[in-house]
């Protein structure tokens, strides 16, 4: 409760963060291991890191059918491990995996007011070459209220009203096959609130309760431009 009070205290502004005179250290948080899921293409064939484009995010579900995630190839940017904090507490973000440490994944739900990629439209996207709201190339941008996140730095907030980073998804890389798998997520309390917020929509899309089902051994990755009918380039 104290920790939650603290998180609220900080929400809303940089000035809130400047007030860092907390008496209660936030608890340490860690990834929840989930059964690993191999990242495959829309055709079911395992993805090879070498074939993953850097121009846009791929969308996959993990660890449950209703949780949208972005797989991002950062191109020439490497993602180094970083100390992060979200509503669950402090955590160590492991950085990128695969060749050059270029591959990262996050839950594609804006932590501000929960915009996420849907079949009709996605207000959240990875703007590889920048955009009006992004502030710089290579940011994840939410059109709704202009929140921006840097995927090379654990999806920390770089602009807009969001106060918490996007939830991290842990990736594992297999050099032998040049393949990737998702095997952990951090922030299931947020995911449960997301489910509650969108329950009607999710039931309509996945069938009653279908959004809560585990994805299984593999999960398909689809370019955002194919996943969503409209992707505004905010």
């Amino acid at each position: 409760m104290d920790r939650r009070g603290f998180v609220k205290l900080c929400s809303g502004s940089a000035a809130g963060l400047a007030l860092a005179d907390w008496t209660h250290r936030a608890a340490a948080a860690d990834f929840e291991a989930a059964p690993p899921a191999r990242l495959v293409g829309g055709d079911g064939v395992p993805l090879k890191a070498a074939d993953i484009p850097a121009g846009e995010a791929l969308v996959f579900a993990y660890p449950m059918a209703g949780v949208p995630c972005f797989l991002i190839n950062l191109g020439d940017r490497a993602a180094h491990p970083a100390s992060m904090r979200n509503e669950d507490g402090d955590y160590a973000w492991p950085g990128g995996v695969g060749p050059g440490g270029r591959f990262v994944a996050f839950v594609a739900i804006c932590t501000h007011q929960m915009s996420y990629p849907q079949p009709a439209v996605s207000y959240l996207r990875y703007a590889a070459s920048g955009s009006e709201l992004a502030g710089a190339p290579g940011r994840i941008v939410c059109c709704a209220h202009a929140s921006a996140f840097d995927p090379a730095e654990g999806a920390r907030v770089t602009g807009g009203p969001a106060t918490l980073p996007l939830l991290p998804v842990r990736l594992a890389y297999d050099a032998a096959s040049d393949g990737l798998a998702a095997d952990g997520i951090l922030g299931m309390a947020f995911v449960q609130r997301f489910f509650k917020t969108y329950k009607a929509d999710l039931n309509a899309r996945f069938g009653p309760g279908g959004y809560r089902e585990a994805v299984g051994d593999t999960t398909a990755c689809v370019p955002l431009s194919r996943y969503s009918g409209v992707v505004p380039t905010c």
């Binding site: 007011q113 915009s115 207000y123 009006e132 709201l133 059109c143 709704a144 609130r193 509650k196 505004p232």
Partner: peptide, 27 residues
């Protein structure tokens, strides 16, 4: 201000409102 009108901001206008509804009514 962002005063050159475009379709991206047109779409964003809808989600701007939905976000505020969620922020007020959802858990």
């Amino acid at each position: 201000t962002f005063e050159s009108r475009d379709a991206a901001k047109g779409q964003a206008t809808l989600e701007w409102a939905r976000g505020i509804y969620r922020d007020m009514f959802a858990a």
